[in-house]
């Protein structure tokens, strides 16, 4: 059925949780303790470098990161005030999109489609788990391998 090869183990940080690979396999998002606060960290697996995030340096504690195909979009569950919310950072435009749910639905986990067209959100409502799908196509540019322009490449690689 094929061999198994471990290509990287441990990133030198204590307590790494919630890994999320980009679809192209070049990037990894994970949750690490930063000054005692669970924070999302984005790594380039080709050189091991930590990539900066503009909006996601706040709204901690973070959980459940998810990446689009080229890691253009980084989605995570974060916090604003006393409310949990879904946040998507666009690393090309520098914009962020936030999804605040009604107070009776608390977001817990999320998953972004590889091209960024859909977001699945696990919420807890009246003690029950639920998954809701959201369509993002009218608001964000899709992140597909063939649509990756030279300017996009330089922004994503150079950040």
């Amino acid at each position: 059925m094929g061999r198994v090869e471990r290509i990287q183990a441990s990133f030198g940080t204590r307590n790494q949780q919630d890994p999320a690979l980009s679809a192209n396999g070049d990037n990894l998002a994970l949750i690490v303790d930063y000054n005692g606060r669970p924070s999302v960290q984005l790594r380039d697996l080709r050189n091991g470098k930590i990539l900066p995030l503009r909006h996601l340096s706040r709204n901690q504690p973070h959980s459940s990161p998810s990446l689009s195909w080229n890691a253009r979009y980084v989605a995570v569950i974060g916090q604003r005030g006393n409310r949990r919310l879904a946040i998507i950072e666009d690393r090309v435009t520098g914009r962020s999109h936030q999804l605040v749910m009604p107070r009776d639905r608390i977001p817990v986990r999320l998953s972004l489609a590889p091209d960024g067209s859909q977001l699945a959100l696990q919420v807890i409502e009246k003690g029950q788990w639920r998954i809701e799908l959201f369509d993002l196509r009218k608001k964000i540019e899709l992140d597909q391998p063939k649509l990756r322009s030279k300017s996009t490449q330089s922004v994503l690689g150079g950040l």
């Binding site: 198994v4 090869e5 290509i7 990287q8 183990a9 890994p19 697996l45």
Partner: peptide, 20 residues
Amino acid sequence: VLAVQVSRQGRWDVEIIRLQ
């Protein structure tokens, strides 16, 4: 390619595995 969260000796690690 898999990224796996693994518990080892009281801490969480993330391990990258490639299937041939």
